[in-house]
Amino acid sequence: MRKFTFILMALFVATIAKAQNDYTKSLNGIQWVKIESKTDIVIKTHSSNELLIKSGPEIKTPERAKGLKLVGEGGTDNTNVGFSVVQDGNTLIVYNLRKSKGAEIHLPASQNIAVKSTWNGDIEIDGFSGEIEADAQLNGGIKIHNVNGPVTANSLNGQLEVVFGKVKQDSPISLYSTNGAVDVSLPSNTPANLALSTLNGNVYTDFEVKAEDKDGLKSVLGRNIKASINGGGVKISMKSTNGNMYLRKK
């Protein structure tokens, strides 16, 4: 009996310890979650209607910082996981104050999210059906997988990779990169109006747009290609100034 109580106590303590490490906040009345980070950020779905920031096991506050708060340009750490979380109207602003080490954030699948990487951090988003905005402002790349909703993504030097599930909404999709490649996979039966443009790169696709054969995928000459597939539908605009563009059937 004593042994049992001990195990129960241990479990209880462990739960509390875990709860202290992760940060959660209810998303009631929140339409948009805006996340800004300098380091890698991974965003996944979970089933509860709350924001969950995993601290990761390696995050340790320096001994000297005991009793002090982490302060960064995005605000003060009010989560004990190195993030500042502030609600502004119907928007939740989540700011990663740490300049090293990545973070993992969990949100409900239907959440609208806007993610910005301001330095070298890569953005990885998986499995959302809401609206997604991703902006890698410097060297970070963007990977967005299994999404259904409107995506607005922009990268400067990193590559932009988007894999769509069934696209059934009509709000425009816009995918731009300056120096990186733009690589998009789309279900082959997606009704869409495509606008592909590149300045110095090439466009490769296996969709039916006017093209020449080149290694299975087609290299499309010319800088602006407009085509409607499967009878036309959602507007999908892809642009890479210096990188190549790949549009694949899924």
Binding site: T91, N112, E131, E133, V151, S171, P172, I173, S174
Partner: peptide, 12 residues
């Protein structure tokens, strides 16, 4: 609109 996609739709 708050959504970038909607703003793009507006511009279009």
């Amino acid at each position: 609109n708050q959504s970038a996609s909607k703003r793009i739709q507006g511009v279009n």
